[in-house]
Structures are given as structure tokens and as C-alpha cells.
């Protein structure tokens, strides 16, 4: 199978280049990650992140034939050859397919991604109705792979100011949690021309999310709550 892979090693390359590979696959190779491991067996200098190989750890996000996705759950049958692989767009490249995700995590951290509840904890669990718990479905499952934020033009232009779809999804995950008591602060934290409102509902995030989540919808819900608060 044929691949065209973005290569860059800051120690020896003045600029990035594309390298062609043609590797023989085993009949058991199913996913793009399986093929990448074949490539690495031929050329151990090719660098990429990977771990769980089942789409739950979020390590192997990359740009695959122009679209962000996880290599481990991208079926080889779905890919047009040569398969073009590039690092996630918009973030600084450390080497080959490995990007520096500091900015992405900085935005995630900026929304205070933890439950705030200052009431004394009960001896047992805090009660939550199944309906209230259902509000978290489609939010808590995020794997922080960054496919969404690095597919978002607003995040490309303002990665330092716009929280981005992944961070905002997490923000709404806590806003929507019946156990959380920091709604006001959470909204204040996003009340700014950039942090939330740079989302122009382009919906690239929804298109690429490997977990089928919908950050645009979560962002819309935060905007609704924000508007209601003002009225």
C-alpha cells in the first residue's frame, strides 16, 4: 500500500518534506495504525504517537487524506491511495506526525475542567437522577485527541484566545452536571469576544470527532444559557 507522509526532524531538516512509502501489508492489517507500524518496521525514524489502538486514548490523531482522525480506528479499506498523512493542522510540529499540544491543553485547563461543589460531601454518593446523568452523555466521552480543535478555523487563527471545541465541550460537561455549583463563574470565564463567541458554527469539529460527539451543539447550549442570563 502506498503512503505519502509528512516528514520533519528539526535536527537535520531545514524544512518539512513528503516521503513516499510502499509497504506490503499482512492480511490481518485492518486499520491505518497497523499499516503505520509496518512502515515503522521498514523505517524506524518515522515518529508518531500511539497507544491503546482502539480509539479510546486519543494518541494517534493525525490528518489523513485531508481529514483529521485517529489512525487506529480508520479502516484501510476506506482510504484512497496514496494515503496522505500529515500532522494535525495548526499546532507546532515537534517531529514528523507529532505535534506540540501545549496550546490545546492550555485551553482545556482554562475552563477549570473539574467538578466544583463546596458543600460538605455526604457519607455516600451525591444523588443524581438518571435524567440529570443523561445530560452528560455526549460530553464526558471526549478523549482529548484534538481532532476537533485542530480542524477549526477559529482555533487556527486564535489558538491563544479561543477555547476551541474540545475545551468548550468540557466546559459544558461541567455546566450541565447537576452536581456542579460553579455555573456563574464558568459563564463569566467564557464571557469574552473570543473564548466562546469565536465559534462560527462551521461544524468541522462535528465532522471529524472520532467519538461522534457534537461540540457545536454544546457550544450552542452555552450561548443559550449566556443569553438567558443577560435577559
Amino acid at each position: 500500500m502506498k503512503f505519502r507522509i509528512y516528514r520533519y526532524d528539526p535536527e537535520k531538516d531545514d524544512r518539512p518534506y513528503v516521503q513516499d512509502y510502499d509497504v506490503a501489508l499482512d492480511p490481518h492489517d485492518r486499520m491505518l495504525l497497523d499499516a503505520l507500524i509496518r512502515v515503522k518496521a521498514v523505517d524506524d525514524t518515522l515518529s508518531f504517537r500511539r497507544s491503546c489502538r482502539e480509539g479510546v486514548c486519543g494518541s494517534d490523531a493525525m490528518n489523513i487524506n485531508g481529514k483529521n482522525g485517529l489512525a487506529c480506528v480508520t479502516n484501510l479499506n476506506e482510504l484512497k491511495e496514496p494515503v496522505e498523512l500529515r500532522p494535525l493542522p495548526g499546532l507546532p510540529v515537534i517531529r514528523d506526525l507529532i505535534v506540540d499540544m501545549s496550546q490545546f491543553f492550555m485551553q482545556y485547563h482554562s475552563i477549570k475542567p473539574y467538578l466544583v461543589n463546596d458543600s460538605p460531601a455526604p457519607e455516600k454518593e451525591r444523588l443524581q437522577s438518571p435524567e440529570d446523568r443523561e445530560e452528560l452523555d455526549g460530553l464526558y466521552e471526549c478523549i482529548l485527541c484534538a481532532c476537533c480543535s485542530t480542524a477549526c478555523p477559529s482555533f487556527w487563527w486564535n489558538p491563544d484566545k479561543f477555547v476551541g471545541p474540545a475545551g468548550l465541550l468540557a466546559a459544558y460537561r461541567f455546566i450541565a452536571d447537576s452536581r456542579d455549583q460553579a455555573l456563574g463563574e464558568r459563564l463569566d470565564n467564557l464571557e469574552d469576544p473570543y473564548r466562546l463567541f469565536r465559534c462560527h458554527t462551521i461544524m468541522n469539529c462535528v465532522d471529524v470527532c472520532p467519538k461522534g460527539l457534537n461540540p457545536t451543539q454544546a457550544i450552542g447550549k452555552i450561548k443559550d444559557i449566556m443569553v438567558k442570563r443577560v435577559v
Binding site: 473539574y114 467538578l115 461543589n117 460531601a121 455516600k124 454518593e125 451525591r126 444523588l127 443524581q128 437522577s129 438518571p130 440529570d132 446523568r133 452528560l136 464526558y140 461541567f174 452536571d177 452536581r179 456542579d180
Partner: peptide, 15 residues
């Protein structure tokens, strides 16, 4: 649970 872990719930609100 107090840390915020999103456990599934029974009708009575318990885990």
C-alpha cells in the same frame, strides 16, 4: 463520585 466521576445512576439517584 464526589470528585465528579460520571457514574450511571439508578432511579433513586444512587450509583
Amino acid at each position: 463520585e464526589h470528585f465528579g466521576m460520571p457514574f450511571d445512576r439508578n432511579a433513586d439517584g444512587t450509583i
